[in-house]
Design a protein around this nucleic acid. Sequence first.
RNA 1: GGGCACUUAGCUCAGCGGUAGAGCACUUCCUUGACAUGGAAGGGGUCACAGGUUCGAUCCCUGUAGUGCCCACCA
Length: 920
Amino acid sequence: MLEKTYQPATIEPRIRDDWEKAEAFKAGKPERAKATPYAIVIPPPNVTGSLHMGHALNNTLQDVLCRFERMRGKDVLWQPGTDHAGIATQMVVERQMMERQEPNRRDIGREKFVEKVWGWKEESGGTIVNQLKRLGASCDWSRERFTMDEGLSKAVVKVFVELHRAGLIYKDKRLVNWDPKFQTAISDLEVVQVEKRGSFTWICGDPEKPFEADALGKVLAKDPSGHMYHFRYPLTKAVAGYDKDYIVVATTRPETMLGDTGVAVHPEDARYAALVAAKATVTLPLAGRVIPIVADEYSDPEKGTGAVKITPAHDFNDFEVGKRQGLDKINVLTAFGKMTDDVPEAYRGLDRFEARRRVVADLNALGLLEKIEPTSHTVPHGDRSNVVIEPWLTDQWYCDAATLAKPAIAAIESGKTQFVPKNWEKTYFEWMNNIQPWCISRQLWWGHQIPAWYGPDGKFFVAEDESSAADAAKKHYKADVVLKRDEDVLDTWFSSGLWPFSTLGWPGKTPELKRFYPTSVLVTGFDIIFFWVARMMMMSLHVMKEVPFKDIYIHALVRDEKGQKMSKSKGNVMDPLVIIDEYGADALRFTLARMAAQGRDIKLAKATVEGNRNFATKLWNAARFAEMNECVRQRDFDPKKIKQPLNRWIAGETERAASAVTAGLEAYKFNDASGAIYDFVWGVFCDWYLELIKPILMGDDDIAKTETRATVAWVLDQILKLLHPFMPFITEELWAHMVEHGVARQSLLTLSEWPELKGLSNQAVDDEIGWVVKLISEVRSVRTEMNIPAGAKIPAIVSGASAETQTRARDHDETIQRLARLESITFAKTAPKGSALIVIGEATVALPLEGVIDMDAERKRLEKGIAQAESDMGKAQAWLANDSNVAKSPEHVVELNRKRVTDGTETIKRLKAALKRIEA
RNA sequence: GGGCACUUAGCUCAGCGGUAGAGCACUUCCUUGACAUGGAAGGGGUCACAGGUUCGAUCCCUGUAGUGCCCACCA
C-alpha cells in the first residue's frame, strides 16, 4: 500500500540502488547490439567542484534525452567524467595549504605539490559525481574518465606531438595576458574586461602652476586608475615649423611610460609633419632616454592630441607599432607586477600601482603633467584571479587556431553539425572567423606537462616520451646530452577539447569509438561555446576527420529569481542539493525542464519548484487512488478494444499526450514535452477522468468496472513512462507498485518501452465526453454565482434536447449528478419557472431554484452571458461582412466564423428567452 | 563600435498570422469515500510604442524607447 504522502528522500536512494544493481545504464549491452547507438559526452565538471544549478540544468536535460532514447530502444552511452581544471584546482589546493598554514607550493616543490593535488582529487573528486547521481543522472558510471587519467593523458601528448609536427603548434615570444597573481599566461578568453571609472572628479592641470604636491598625492592615493593622464614629453631640440618644445601624449597607465621607446603620430597629420620630417626626438622624462617620433597609421589624429606614446613591451597595439617601426622593447614589469631594474633607480621594485602614483607626482613636480581627466575605460582582469592582467613579453606555446578553425567553420556551414537553437551559429562564426592564436601553455604545475625537452643550447625536441626525445637529441647533437623537460603545462581546455574521442579510448581503435563516435548531441550552456565547443570542433575534426557531434543544444544560464547571476559573494546561490533535500530531485528536474525554453536565462524561484513537487504529490495520489480501487494491469489489455466511452476518451487523450511529449523531446523542446505531460496528468487524467469514472468504480456494472480498472492501470503506465525522463525516481517507484495479476512488477521502468500510441482517438467519443464536461462546468459555474451551498443537491431539467443529447445525458446520468452535485436529471418540454438556465448547444438546462435563487443575481448572470455572446458573435459577423475576408481566407477560417455566428445566434436567443422568463 | 536577445495578467514566464495561456499571488466557497503539497468558481491583459506587409498582426518587416548579454576597442 502506498503511503499517504510522497517522501522523495526515502525513495530516491533506494531507486538509485535498483538502477545500479541492474546496471541499467550500461552502454553496449549485448541485447542492444543491433540497436541504434546514441551517445552524449558529459561536459566534464571540475573535479574539485560541487553541483550548482547550472550543472543541475545541464545534466537534467542530458538525462531526459538519454532516458528517452534508452526507452525508445537505443543503445545509449552517456559518457561521464571530470576535468582536472588546471588553475581552479591548483588555486583550491593552494588556498587550503595556506589556511592550514602549511609551507607553500614553492617551498615543497613541484613533485610534492602535484602529489598533494592528486591526494585532494582522490579525496574530494567523487563529490560531484555523487551529486550527479543524486540528481538522477543515468550515466554509464563504469566508464567514468578524468582528463588526467592515463588514457586521456596519452591522447593529449599524441595530439600535441602531431599538431607540432604539422606546424600547428609552435613556440613564440610575444605579448601574452599575464596573470601576476597566479604567475601564468592565460588565453584571451580567460580575460574579462572590467569597467573602470575614475574615482576622483576631473582635475585640470596647468603646467605653469603645477598641482600642489600634497593635494595631488591625496587624490592619487584614492585610486589612480580610471583616469587619463596627459604628459608633456620635451623635444630633444627645437624643430622649425613646430611651435612648441614638447609634445603631449596621454595614457591611462602612467607607469608604463618608463618603457616607452617612441611616440607615434599619423603620417598625414599636418600638426606633426614638421616633427616627422625633421626626424625629431624627445627626451623621455624621468628615464632621460632619447626616443624617436615616428609616423605610423596606428595613431589616430582624432583622439587626444593625435600623438601617442609607444610601449612595445606592455601593450598589444604598441607591440605591433614597435615591430613596424623597429622600436626597442623594454620590459619594465616583473612577473609579479613590480618595476624591473630597467627603470630609473627610484622606481625599481615598486608595485605597478605605486609606481603609477610616483610617476604622476614626479612628472607634476617637473611641470610636465598637463592635466588629469576622469575617463571610463575597461581594464583586463583575470577571470579567476580577478587581478589586473599585464600584457607581458614571454616565450609561450601557441596553437594555430585559425587553421584548425577552417574545417570547424565548414562543418557548421554544411550542416554536418547544427546548433539548436540555430541563432548561436552566428556567434560561433563571428568568433571562429576572427580567431587569434591560442596560447596553450600555462606556468602551472597541475596539468599535462608539455612534451618538449630542451638540450643544453635551448633547442627543444617535442616527442611522445623522454626516450624518443633523447633519441632525437642524440641524432641532432651526435652525442648523449642531458635534456630538461619544459616546465609548463597545457591549458585545461586543450584536454577538454579532445573529450569526445579521448573518453572513447582514442588513440586506441576501441569498439566504443567505432560505435559511438560521432556522438549524437552535445548539451551545454552558451557561456562555453568558445572555450569548449569551438575547441572540440577544431580538435575533433583535425584528429578524427569527423565532427564530434551532430547537434549542439545550447541552453540558458540559471539565475536567481531577480535575474541576477548566482554567486557566492551575492549570497543568492540556490544549492541544488538543498532543493533536492527539500523537494526531491524529481521536482527540481521537472522545474528545470519546464523552464528550458527560455531564451538566455532561467530565473529560478523556490515557489516554482514547490509547485512541481505538488505535481509529484498529485501523481502519487492518483496512483494511490488506482491502487485503492484495484486498478491492476492486465497483461492482454488492448486499448484499441475499449468499449466504455469514458475509457475510449482517455485512451485518445493519452495518445495525444504521448505524441506531444515525443514530438517535444525530438525537437529539444523540453518545456513543450514536460508541459504536455503535466497538463495531461493534472488537467485531464486527475481533474476529469478519475472523477468521471468514480460512479463506474463504485457501481455494480461489473463489465464496465473491470474495463475501467484495466484502463486506469494502462493509462497510469503510459503516464509513468512519459514522465520518467523528467521524474525518474517517483515514476520508477510507482511502477514497482503497479502490480500485474497480483504479482509485484519485476521489470524496471527505466528499461521499459516508450509509448508509441496510434489509432486510439475517436471524434464521436471526444464530442460526447466534451459535452459532459461542458455541462458539469456550466452547472458548477451557475452554482457558485447563485451562491448555492456546495453541499446542496439540486434537480436539473433539460428541455429542447435532441435525441443525441438525451442519450448522452442518460448514459452519463450518474456521473453528471455526482460531479455537478445534482439530485436528478429529468426531461421536460419547457423549463420550469423560477429557474436558473444554462444554454448548451440546442438544449437548455434548468436548475429550478425558486425561493433559493436571487433573481437579481440571475438576471445579471444572464445579461453578462448575453453581452459576452453578442460581442463574440458581433466580431464574427463583422469579419464575415468583409468580402475580402471571405474571399481570401482559408476555408476553415471562414467556416469557423460562420459557426460562431450560428452558434452565437442560437445561444443568444436562448439566453434572452431565459431572461424574459425572469422578468415576466 | 559590432553582434545577439528580450519587452505578453501583480510576479515568473509559455505561446505565435485566424477572438490571449500556465504557474504563483489575489477573491469567494468546499475537509465530498486519491490528494488541503487538495478541490470548485472567479477577478485581472488596448501582448512596450510608431509605422508597414496582409483579407486578418501579440506573432512577419522597419523604426523608436527601455532592458540584458556577448565580442572588440579605448592616447
